[in-house]
Amino acid sequence: METSLASAPMLRPSTWPDALQSRAEHPDAAPICGGTDLMVDINFGRSRPAALLDLTSVEGLDSWELIDDGSTVRVGAGVSFTTIVEELSHLCPALAQAARTVGSPQIRNRGTVAGNLATASPAGDAHPALLACWAQVEVESLRRPRLIEIDDFFVGPKSSALASDELIRAVRVPAATGPQQFAKVGPRNAMVIATASFALNLDVAGRRVGTGIGSAGPTPLRARQAEQMLEETLIDRWDSPGAVADDVIRRFGALAGEAASPIDDVRGSAEYRRHALAVLARRCLSWTLADLPGASARQVARS
């Protein structure tokens, strides 16, 4: 007992095939990269993994690349939030803005989007932006690689579609074709877990509206009705939206609030969360509309 207690085995593969092999052979081993979730759980006694599968030495995980003729950003599982802030703020503005709100500089240096996904907390900062951008999660096991649509990834509180022998290899995020926003409410001005968060993506090329809601339901959510309503409003105006009526913006906020299914907890009440989401959605919409080519200047000043 003593040896196993004092030092859980540490598996340290250096290649991706070895990592998959270790994952298959040690299903009880907890994958660790940034460790910003897992180490907290271990320190608090909430998690005692039989072993750790350290992915930090696996070659090729800590870089990003453009694929699909430059239309998609493939973010390796080991890419830190700091790298996303520094290098992807033009290609993935909502994700980069979300990355800015993650923890402290030290945590952003360690933490990764893939780790955020693997933890699958409803409060994970990256999730609303990934939803709004229709990201895909690239996962792999010895059995096969597969792509999981972000809408199919979150299956419950801290529970995902990732199988016990699978590892996340990368996240594919379509590059922005129009304005995006991410906003997050918490009772502190930095280093805070979201009480509620919202991401919005105006996909000008695809004529689509993407949204994501964080911390206001058992999983990250999409505000489908809000998306549909706005797509209908913009249907023939994507290239010259002009001024969008106030009641459209208000309706969009209300639909975003209604899409949530929040609870009362230590971080805030359900009522506050729903209200805050509506405010965030309104504001994100007015900012993105103002950034559309051909927007009316009036849009900028309104809340």
């Binding site: 906003a183 930095a190 504001r283």
Partner: peptide, 21 residues
């Protein structure tokens, strides 16, 4: 609040306002 550093605004890096409210 419409320009300037978001860290000086309520909500800080959460990017919640450009002066609204």
């Amino acid at each position: 609040h419409t320009t300037g550093d978001m860290r000086a605004r309520p909500g800080g890096v959460g990017n919640v306002t450009r002066g609204e409210g």
